[in-house]
Simulated scan of single mutants.
Amino acid sequence: MAWFKRKEKGITTPTEEKKDSPNGLWHKTPSGKIIHVKELQENAYVCPDDNFHERIGSTEYFEILFDRNEYTELDANMSFADPLEFVDSKPYPERIKASQKKTGLKDAARSAYGKINGKDLCVCCMDFNFIGGSMGSVVGEKIARAIDYSLKTKTPFLMISKSGGARMMEAGFSLMQMAKTSAKLALLEEAKVPYISLMTDPTTGGVTASFAMLGDFNIAEPGALIGFAGPRVIRETIGKDLPKGFQSAEFLLEHGFLDFIVNRRKLKDTLTTLLRLLEN
């Protein structure tokens, strides 16, 4: 039974020299398959086996959309104020600073302009990792200023929504952003500058009730949750069970709330085609 015994010494790797696999090297899809993160990135963060669209933020969307990942960010250093001096489990400024440190973002939205397939486009994108993508004063002001840039330069505007709704820590100031952004979009419509609203998973609350549903074209990613109140609240209010797939992008498309659903892998080319049609 000598072949079961190791006669030579020193052929194993010492414990102190063993190396662990880097964190984040592999990704497990909802169907249980394991794929390399690089493959996922090259596939626009869409799982190739089940078409599941992973949640991504502004950095990834800008990388997918802008030619050679070249863009100019608008109001990059805009940060929060605390007019209400809100305190919950901890003061609001502390929560903001913790989120900024964790995510590397100033707030839950970033805006930039550049070119996609040679076409000018201004994009504002929400980041769910920053306090659930909630809409506060900074988010509303960034959207408003991005629209101002589109108005000034006659550049089509794309809004990528991914949010839990209004930010409760800013109370009325947060709700005011619904009216402000909607009013700005009315100016965009008067100037006949195209506005495309892309709803991703999830798009809910005051965001859905304002700018997310006001696009000249309202589009969504497959499987995205889109709605105002949650299913449980609606069920308890109307006292009835909800239809299967309620508040999914596919359900909304079937009932006329969306113009079309676009796979993220085809997003850039689809937007380019749409912009060309609008030009003509």
Rank of each mutant, 00 (worst) to 15 (best):
S31H: 08
K33Y: 10
H36R: 07
A44N: 15
C47M: 05
D49C: 08
E54N: 10
S58I: 07
E60G: 00
I64R: 04
I64E: 03
I64Y: 02
R68S: 14
N69Y: 10
D75I: 02
P83F: 12
V87A: 11
S89N: 10
Y92T: 07
S99K: 06
Q100R: 06
L105V: 02
K106Q: 15
A109G: 07
R110V: 03
A112Y: 08
I116A: 08
N117H: 12
G118I: 15
K119E: 15
L121A: 11
C125R: 12
M126C: 05
I131V: 09
A144Q: 05
S150D: 05
L151G: 02
K154D: 10
L158A: 01
G165D: 07
A166C: 04
R167I: 00
A171K: 11
S174C: 00
L175H: 14
T181R: 05
A183S: 09
A186E: 13
P194E: 09
Y195E: 02
Y195Q: 01
I196Q: 09
I196R: 06
I196P: 04
L198D: 03
T200W: 01
T204D: 07
T208E: 10
G215D: 06
N218L: 04
V233W: 15
I238N: 13
P243R: 12
F246H: 05
E250A: 04
L252H: 14
E254N: 06
F257W: 13
D259W: 08
R265G: 03
T270P: 09
L271N: 07
L271S: 04
T272I: 00
E279I: 00
